[in-house]
Design a protein around this nucleic acid. Structure first.
Length: 885
RNA sequence: GGGCGCGUAGUUCAGCGGUCAGAACGCGCGGUUCACAUCCGCGAAGUCGCUGGUUCGAUUCCAGCCGCGCCCACCA
């Protein structure tokens, strides 16, 4: 096959994707230099730095494509700011991931028939560290492969010794400041993972259960009693009241009376509470403060006792009376049986409702009352709300501010204890003799005796902190807090925090609270919120669905540059996106185009001397030269605007449009003869435009641009002696050359017009045709050879025969071999009809007094000019048509 | 129950108070000369979800409706 032969040809057929890792040598050099501390120059000290702390990925496995998207976006911003001259810090790290990693490792152990309890805490934590030490370097290697320009001298991990000290300090200060407390509250408990979790980690799922209607007889034996509805009859034995809505007329007379809880035979009152929905079930609710969050609140309001009948393993406690010792499921069945026997079960119907479960596990939430450490939001939240309201933290896109406020305004205290073993163990000790809680002073060693009773039988709290407790400190602990370091003074507050909207609450809000608390300043000036990367078709990726795309596989298949481009292109800020092979193929084609166009220029430059890559020629410019200079200026200017607005998607699209459709398709084609003739001015211009194109594209495709720049600069060294494109200056721009854009635009239109007619008429592409232009001679005459070459024609000026089309008031004709007069006329007639229609619209619009009087004058003037153009176009076409017939 | 977003070409998405609404992919037609078949050229293709309102002018702003998705909430 012809194509296969082509592919096997030497060098020229090699694609950049295949060679993607050739420039690794270059990149390697850069990293080596970087790691030696060469990144920050003393002269940069005065500049305001641009800082992004990488959102630390969980060390639960490999990087996923969401990281690929977010971190690439960040890298684009970092590389751009670096080129703009700001000292940049892009700080890498990773997160120990508490429960998420815990579960992953427990699953691994389960494969070997082990569990954490048989292993014991110490050995389990060793296993966790083994996992971390295996996956952390893997993830870091993946980050390097993606070309993220991270500062590896400052790599941070949430369980580093100094981070552990920072967390301890933070905990102690919050405790001393009265923000932390221990309390028995109803919490979410997972009987599988044997830990509590916070409200935020609850995921609601629809499920169909049975709703049982049960009658509770009155204590005084009068009447039938009151009917309640429940999905959890096993918790009836923990009931302490029956509640109705105070305005529900059906029950008002009953409020204050007592009923007998079935089976356990407990006398409980009927109370009134606003929380009851009269429309649900029977309108009466059994109140079980020990096993339901709503009931817990009702219980608090009415000072009801709390009875716990389910334990942490999901078994019934002795308090459950007859049900004691059974599992939850057994107890439920048993209870239903007993109620039936007692004749108290009135109804049994299916009910679809939503139940909570931990977002990492499929086991349904078991609400239990347990003693936990809580972080009060009372004094921490208001300053964090104010920081966003006042604009000290800006959220982009703005609409996410609403989401933030909605959550922050209704925030509840945060359960920070977890009963797992992996994480920051709570720095509090309990006295076994007097139950005193001992929190040591900041720099004090671990306590060994009780501060109240002097007992030596003290033990550290076995629980660990919620993983977000340490993540919340990330922007300052990575820079050295609580020590007062140079980094902290220099880089805090950071510039941008970029992350998916999913963790706005988990992480972003908490970082703002804790940053303000510890640093008395916001942790970042801008929160740039990302959407989610989905698979083609719009489905969310998940391990359970098995549709997870591995970014490293993408790198292997398409190259890192194409992967970066493919992830970024076509994505509006804050919007979800889809990644697909088709998108990546297109990105690879673009990278390939850059590589090939670059190689063409480099080859043309062979044997030259004295060229300067970043020197802008200004004398003896051809029209095409002036045009590409103006277009490249526009591209660079627009790119800057897009990037300043965090619109990396538009930036990517612009890079493609400029490089492919303008530089490669038109300028390089236009410049070929002069390049071959080794015209020095043209070569300098090619070098210059390539140089600035590479700078423009560098933030999104660092490998190919860096490689080409290194080669370009060997032939045409930049005047500023830039060592690497990564550190070279973002190009400056001149003013737009309107005249060149206008005139070269005409050349392009004429070429397209001729190509168009040729194609229409089925003229052999290798034939040279006779073409003519009638009008625009001044503008076009000097470009005659260019038009002839690009359109494959001999060009004359003035009236002639042939198939005609009119563009910008100029008639373009192509002589056709067998004079098909009818076809030529038909074409003109169609164009004339279109032109007349447009003219009619223009006249109509300008005929409206409401328009001319009320529209802004510049719009009216523009429309007048358009009208004149259209009149000319119609006249021209009419004349051409007369000629043709 | 509250909040947010989306609905534009076959597909994925841009865009915008003022030409004839754009791109890419796909599709159709045609091309093997020295950067590139991972390429080049040309073309077809859209009631901008529906209905009102504001406006000289609405795909764009506002309201309602229809459809889809997401987040929050104490649906027993």
């Amino acid at each position: 096959m012809a194509i296969a032969d082509k592919r096997e040809a030497p060098a020229s057929a090699l694609t950049f994707a295949e060679k993607n890792f050739l420039p690794a040598a270059v990149e390697q050099d850069l990293y080596a230099w970087w790691e030696s501390g060469g990144f920050f120059q003393p002269s940069e000290e005065k500049e305001r730095p641009f800082t992004i702390i990488l959102p630390p990925p969980n060390v639960t496995g490999d990087l996923h494509v969401g990281h690929g998207f977010t971190f690439t976006q960040e890298d684009i911003l970092v590389r751009w700011h670096r080129m703009e001259g700001a000292p940049t810090l892009f700080l890498p790290g990773s997160d120990h991931a508490g429960i998420a990693a815990h579960i992953v490792v427990e699953r691994e152990l389960a494969k070997e028939g082990l569990d954490r309890f048989s292993l014991g805490r110490e050995r389990f934590v060793e296993e966790m560290w083994k996992w971390m030490e295996h996956y952390k370097p893997r993830m870091y290697a993946q980050m390097r492969a993606m070309g993220w320009s991270l500062d590896w001298t400052r790599t941070a991990f949430t369980m580093d010794p100094d981070k552990q000290r920072a967390v301890r300090t933070h905990f102690i200060r919050l405790y001393r400041g009265g923000h932390l407390y221990r309390a028995d509250r109803i919490v979410h408990w997972c009987v599988t993972d044997q830990t509590t979790y916070s409200d935020l980690e609850v995921e609601h799922v629809e499920r169909t259960d049975t709703l049982w209607t049960v009658r509770y007889p009155f204590a005084d034996g009068s009447g039938p009693g009151i009917r309640i509805a429940t999905t959890r009859p096993e918790t009836i034995v923990a009931d302490v009241a029956v509640a109705v809505h105070p305005d529900d007329k059906r029950w008002t007379a009953l409020i204050g009376r007592e009923v007998i809880v079935p089976v356990i035979e407990r006398r409980v009152p009927i109370i009134a509470d606003e929380a009851i929905d009269p429309a649900f079930g029977t309108g009466a609710l059994k109140v079980t403060p020990g096993h339901d969050a709503t009931d817990f609140e009702i219980g608090r309001r009415h000072r009801l006792p709390i009875i716990s009948v389910v334990d942490t393993r999901g078994r019934m406690t002795p308090a459950a009376g007859a049900l004691a010792g059974l599992t939850r499921e057994e107890a439920r069945a048993d209870m239903v049986k007993r109620l039936k026997r007692l004749g108290l079960l009135e109804k049994e119907e299916p009910l679809t409702h939503s139940v909570g479960r931990h977002d990492r596990c499929s086991t349904i939430d078991e609400p239990l009352v347990l003693k936990q450490w809580w972080c009060s939001m009372e004094r921490l939240a208001p300053p964090a709300i104010d920081a966003v309201r006042s604009g000290r933290v800006r959220i982009v896109p703005e609409r996410f501010e609403k989401t933030y406020f909605q959550w922050m305004d209704n925030i509840r205290d945060w359960n920070i204890s977890r009963q797992i073993w992996w994480g920051h163990q709570i720095p509090a000790w309990h006295c076994r003799d007097c139950s005193e809680v001992i929190v040591p002073d900041e720099d004090a060693p671990d306590p060994t005796r009780c501060t109240r009773c002097d007992s030596t039988d003290v033990q550290q709290d076995p629980d660990v902190l919620d993983t977000w407790f340490s993540s919340a400190l990330w922007p300052h602990t990575t820079l050295g807090w609580p020590a007062d370091t140079a980094d902290l003074r220099r880089f805090y507050p950071t510039s941008v925090l970029n992350t998916a909207y999913e963790i706005l609450f988990f992480w972003v809000a908490r970082m703002i609270m804790m940053g303000l608390q510890n640093m008395h300043d916001v942790p970042f000036r801008v929160v740039f919120v990302n959407g989610i990367v989905r698979v083609a078709g719009g489905e969310k990726m998940s391990k359970t669905k098995g549709n997870v795309v591995d970014p490293m596989q993408m790198v292997r298949d398409f190259g890192a540059d194409a992967t970066r481009f493919g992830l970024i292109t076509g994505v509006a800020p804050g919007a979800d996106s889809q990644i697909s092979a088709v998108k990546l193929e297109h990105a690879r084609n673009l990278v390939n185009k850059v590589w090939n166009a670059g190689r063409f220029v480099l080859a043309a430059l062979d044997g030259t001397a004295g060229l300067v890559a970043d020197e802008r020629p200004s004398a003896e410019l051809s029209l095409a030269d002036r045009w590409i200079l103006s277009r490249s200026d526009a591209a660079i200017r627009d790119a800057r605007n897009h990037l300043a607005r965090f619109d990396t998607g538009e930036y990517a699209a612009l890079c493609e449009r400029f490089f492919w459709s303008e530089f490669a398709d038109w300028y390089v084609e236009a410049a070929k003869p002069q390049a071959r003739a080794r015209d020095r001015r043209t070569l300098q211009l090619l070098a210059y435009v390539l140089d600035r194109s590479l700078r423009l594209l560098h933030p999104i495709m660092p490998y190919v641009t860096e490689t080409l720049a290194q080669q370009l600069w060997r032939k045409a060294p930049p005047s500023d002696g830039a060592k690497a494109l990564m550190l070279a200056a973002w190009p400056a721009t001149g003013t737009a050359d309107r005249d060149a854009e206008e005139r070269f635009g005409l050349v392009m239109d004429v070429v397209r017009a001729i190509r168009n007619i040729r194609q229409d008429q089925g003229i052999d592409p290798s034939d040279t045709v006779d073409a003519s232009v009638d009008g625009g001679r001044d503008a076009l005459e000097s470009q005659q050879p260019l038009v002839e070459r690009l359109a494959g024609c001999r060009l004359t000026f003035g009236a002639a025969d042939g198939m005609a089309t009119v563009i910008r008031g100029i008639t373009v004709r192509v002589r056709i071999a067998r004079g098909d007069a009818a076809a030529a006329r038909a074409r003109l007639e169609k164009e004339l009809a279109d032109a007349r229609e447009q003219l009619r619209r223009s006249r109509e619009l300008l005929g409206l007094e409401s328009f001319t009087a009320k529209a802004p004058p510049e719009i009216v003037a523009k429309e007048r000019a358009r009208l004149a153009e259209r009149e000319a176009q119609v006249r021209k076409l009419e004349a051409d048509l007369r000629r043709a017939s």
